[in-house]
Every structure is written in C-alpha cells, then in structure tokens.
Design a protein around this nucleic acid. Structure first.
Lengths: 201, 201
DNA sequence: TAAAAATTCTACTATATAGTCAAATTTATA
DNA sequence: TATAAATTTGACTATATAGTAGAATTTTTA
C-alpha cells in the first residue's frame, strides 16, 4: 500500500538508508560538477555532509561508484523526461523544444548535475554510462528526424543539429550558478528560443 | 632579419628547444582533451612522444605548467582570430559567424584543444586562465551587441546568446574525432548555419 | 678527436588520497 | 534498562604518480 508505506517511511530503515545514500550521491555530484571529480576528495564529500570519509564507505563501495551513480541519476531523469513527454498533436519542433526546456529546468532547478568525466570510470561502468548517454542522444536525434519529416525542422545532419544544442546543455554545468543573476526559468526561455530558431524551417 | 632567422632556425638551439616544448604541450593537450587531465599521467605524455617521464622535466617545470600552457595555446589562437577578423563592412551577424567558423576550424583542424579543467590549476595560474577566458567571452559578447545594434542580431541577453553557441564549441571537444565520418569543414558549415539562424532577426 | 653542452635515462623519494578495520558511539528493540 | 543493530569514527595501510638526482648518452663545437 503506497499510503501506508509513505507514512511508515521515516521509520523504515531501508528507506532511510536509501535516502542517505542518495544525499551522498547528490552532494558529491554537485561538487564534481563544480570542481571536477579528481579535485574532490572523499574527505571533501564527507565534510560537506558533516561526516567523516570513513562513514561514506558505509553507503558506497568506492569513489567510482559515486561517480557512476551521479551519471545514472542525471540520465534517469532525462529518460524520465523523454518518456513522459508525449508528442500528442505537437509538431516535432514543439515536442523537441518542450523536452529541451525540461532538460534545462532539470539542470538549473533540481540539483541534478550532468557530468562529463566519463573517462574516470573503468571497464563495465564506463561502458554502461556511455551506452546510456548514447541512448538518450539517439532518442533526441529521433525527435529531430521526426520534426524534419513533418516539415517543422530544417533539413541537415540530425546528429549535428543535436550536438549543437546539447553542447549548450553541457556547457550550462560549467557556468551556471544557482546564486547568480540569471534565473533558471529565464535561461530555459532563452535557450528554447535559440534552439527553435536555430533549427526550425 | 626575418629571412635569415628562419633559414638558421633549424640550427638555432633556442628555436629547437621551443619547438620541442611546444610539441610536448600540444601532445599533452590532445591527451587531456580526450581522457582528461588527471587520467593522463606524465608517463603517458612522455610515451606518446617516445620519451621518458623524466625527460619532460627538461622542458617544463611541472605537470600543471603543461595544463596552463595548453589553455594559453587555445586562448592565444582565439585572440588571434578575434584580432585579425575585421568588421570591414560586414553586419555584426556576418562578422560573428566568420569568427565562430574560424573557432570551429581551429578546434577541428589545427590540433589545438579547448580544455575545461580549469580547477586543476592553482592560484595565480587559475586566475590568469579564467581572466583570459573572460576576455574572450566579453569580446564575443561585444560582437553580439554590435549585431543587435545594427539590427542583424535578435534582441535578448547577449551573454545568453553567447553561452548557447559557445557551449557547442566546448562540447565539440568531447565528441569530435579527427578520424570520424564528420569532417571539420562540414561541421563548421553546419554550426555556422545553426548559429546564424539561432540569433538572427 | 677531445672537450663541452644538450638531452635523455635509470632508479629513486615524497606525497596525496583512496580504502580498511576494529573499536566507539548512537539509535532502536525486548 | 539491557541487548542488539545500525552508524560513525580514529588511526591505520596501500598505491599511484608527481617530481628529483645524478649518471649515461647523444649531439655540437673547437
């Protein structure tokens, strides 16, 4: 029962553990985004949560797992956005704009960070993350192609269309600062417009 | 005398030293771009040049200097482009497009890499690099504003205009691969068009 | 060809930090 | 309140790699 579960949640050990683990990942991801993975020590991550480095190892196997989960968190959110946003009568362009807007909101409002340091992951983990990124990329490319098919999006290499505006999204992480003058909503509006003009027919 | 100097150059010790040092920086920068600064060891950098790690220290003080000079190399090139490209009767938009095109060419053709890992620099070096990046950003913003003044570029926050397409430029480093199917020239054409449509009136 | 200068190497040290472990502490349960 | 389970800690080890020193080698010059 969902309602019972949510009332009991604060007393449920597993739920608390999961929530704390999630807090570790989110806090670390934010630090990774700002200073980079290798410039953030386990001690730093612990300190930000009022914990000792050793305590972190109660929640995660190792530092790399944190990086892995950070990536997953972002890609899960993006998948969610792609899944929930239905074309329902929209042109390809409108649909794409809506998705892109939600991507910007995700990165500026929710605390989720889109990281680039994939090469600090090894073996299976790296492969998995690259695959996830690829899937999302492919889905966005498909959106563009649909827009080209219905005539709302300009012709041209769909991959290049996508690389261009996904660059804006990734670059956002480097300069966006929640405290700054620019508000997430303004950025979403501006970027949506620039995306639209850039690729519409 | 320039001509005498260039003929003697191969015998000039200082010139040779400078050329070798430059090769170290360029090769390292390319590795940094692909795998990241911290995932590239001094041993790696040496190996790529057929040298031992120790030999590198004949050319540079430390690893951080390599990162610093890598950044400088990119920003010097971009400054050069900005300086040499005169408005001479062009609209602000045309001028900007020309500059942007040259930026793309720089990153896809010349072997110069635009790095993001500024936080691995410390103190004075970090400050200097951030200042250089800022200067370039400001100049590009000024180009946009000029275009808005002459009516060739859409109104709106000039900084956001710039962040958007500079994102595409930075993201290029992450995915572009000289061997790949996409050629630098095609990318420049495509990106120039997307830039133009994105911000023109 | 011998001496000097430039360049590179082998073998080493120093350091930062990821990761471990057993004990201490806190929190829940009977 | 006593016991058990969950959580956190201090003090440690292990490892990767940046950086060094002096010898060896190559290249230039006289």
């Amino acid at each position: 029962m969902a309602s019972t579960a949510s009332v009991k949640a604060p007393f449920d050990r597993e739920v608390q553990f999961a929530a704390k683990k999630r807090a570790v990942i989110l806090s670390a991801a934010s630090a990774f985004r700002r200073r980079g993975y290798h410039n953030t020590s386990m001690t730093d991550i612990g300190k930000a949560l009022g914990l000792t480095k050793a305590a972190l190892y109660y929640y995660v196997r190792n530092k790399e797992e944190i990086l892995f989960e950070s990536h997953l968190m972002a890609y899960d959110s993006m998948d969610e956005i792609l899944k929930n946003s239905q074309p329902c009568g929209l042109t390809g362009l409108d649909h794409l704009e809506s998705v892109f807007r939600q991507f910007v909101d995700l990165l500026t409002q929710s605390g989720v960070s889109l990281l680039t340091d994939v090469d600090s992951l090894s073996g299976e983990w790296k492969t998995q993350i690259l695959a996830r990124r690829n899937t999302i990329e492919k889905r966005v490319i498909r959106l563009v192609k649909r827009g080209q098919a219905d005539g709302s999006i300009r012709d041209g290499d769909a991959r290049l269309h996508v690389f261009f505006f996904m660059g804006a999204l990734n670059w956002l992480n480097a300069w966006f600062d929640g405290e700054g003058r620019l508000q997430g909503k303004d950025i979403a509006d501006h970027f949506a417009l620039q995306l639209r003009h850039g690729i519409s027919t």
